[in-house]
Write a protein that binds this DNA or RNA. Structure first.
Lengths: 248, 248
DNA sequence: CGGTCGTTTGACTGCGGTCAAAATCCGTGG
DNA sequence: CCACGGATTTTGACCGCAGTCAAACGACCG
């Protein structure tokens, strides 16, 4: 906790890399000015816990850069990841006083935080924020439901393929890369984190990743750098409808 | 589809049984009057499909009475339930033109429908509706994430116990029953529907229900009527924290 | 009475979990 | 530059939980 850093200077909203995708996306200039007054940046290092489940939450905020995970843990230690937080994703629930999940930085992370009470008060007066938050929450709900199908009904191989295609899609969207390009990215998750996301053990993840590599569905350089020669093939392996533009 | 019934008369909102829990919960009298103008009731019989995935959605609405399910299906027929819709739950996504899931009535069902375009237009002008919808969506997101833990990490026995405790909780809350009472309710789902919710086969569901009965965790009269002699015991079996008031 | 639907039960199989060990990666300090 | 130690990943052998296939049972209805 000691190596967490608060930045004294928060960059101007108008230059923010997530300006057009985050909870503030629809705000007008004057609304942004009021947001500037209650915002502050915080940095976390890879591996640090951002919020502990059950803790009192004094802020909500957006991921500016880096990746974090949302996880739930049972008393006996079994854990399930319930969300992957990428830049522009929102953290925290207005109207709730204590955190429901652990939030952990898996890479170095920068967050744009808003003090909770002022943010909630501002939400009531600023429909642009509430509207955008509703839209984002509906998207997250859809993603969670898609993930329920993955967890409940897919095989281990399909689960891995599903995770890779989701990361590939999000990566392409964030980096504005063309989908027709040869997709290539770094896995932001350890095998254990992948297992926690997919409801598998890390051994099974390792075996199935190797199998997909052996079958030519993916290519690996080192343990983490992935290339996808044929995205249609990967989507087929995921059990998704290959055509019909999940990527459109 | 022919036996679907439209009611010519929609009861007054002020007498509505879900008045204080549905998307209209926070509306003032004048706001309710405007909602009355765009609402209509529809009845569905048990087994009927309310909405097909992919269909154009011409309405959104609330469940007034009865129970419906939200399901997703893969090409090869594997299906996963992603939501259980009880009275006051909201159906449909403002801002989206086609349905993402199948909605099926599992009992006779009455819905309070709003034509989609007028409802969306009204949402922009009526913060009370948007606020309540955000709150409900956040609750659904939490429920979906809790379910991800069930699907990803719990054993078949724990899954059954989790489902029973959720139904017991919701049933108690809807019928305003005291939790300390001897909990008793009718299962609104077939074994197959339970299996689709839990990511199991119907045979496994049947076996585990029998096992819980044999072990005295639940009592059965017929196939569907369930009594829970000790809710704490059931929560233990579900792998949840037994104390601490999930039921508080 | 036969037919359908939902459910239970049994026998067997196989996918993914468990336990264990080896291999690889990577940062750190001598 | 290399040796060391810890973390991460891979691989192997074995096992058990839940899936599969099949049959029978009970309730309900025409």
């Amino acid at each position: 906790m000691l190596n967490e850093k608060s930045l004294s200077v928060s960059p101007d909203c108008s230059e923010c890399p997530i300006r057009h995708r985050a909870v503030c996306a629809r705000c007008e200039t004057d609304e942004l000015e009021r947001l500037e007054e209650i915002k502050y940046y915080r940095k976390f290092e890879a591996g640090q816990t951002v919020i502990w489940s059950g803790d009192r939450m004094e802020f909500v905020g957006s991921v500016v850069s880096g990746i974090a995970t949302l996880t739930q843990t049972m008393e006996d230690g079994r854990t399930q990841m319930v969300g992957l937080l990428l830049p522009s994703d929102f953290v925290g629930r207005p109207g709730r006083s204590s955190a429901a999940y652990d939030v952990v930085a898996t890479t170095d992370l920068v967050m744009c935080c808003f003090r909770k009470a002022p943010f909630e008060e501002m939400m009531l007066r600023t429909p642009h924020i509430a509207q955008r938050l509703l839209e984002m929450t509906l998207d997250e709900l859809d993603a969670a439901r898609e993930w329920m199908l993955v967890l409940g009904r897919k095989t281990a191989r399909e689960k891995i393929a599903s995770l890779l295609s989701i990361i590939a899609r999000r990566d392409a969207s964030i980096n504005q890369r063309d989908v027709e390009d040869r997709l290539t990215f770094d896995l932001p998750l350890t095998r254990e984190a992948m297992a926690d996301y997919l409801g598998l053990t890390l051994e099974t993840v390792s075996r199935q990743v190797s199998a997909l590599r052996k079958d030519g569905v993916i290519e690996l350089e080192g343990k983490r750098h992935v290339t996808i020669p044929d995205i249609g093939r990967l989507l087929e392996e995921a059990g998704d409808d290959a055509d019909g533009g999940v990527f459109a």
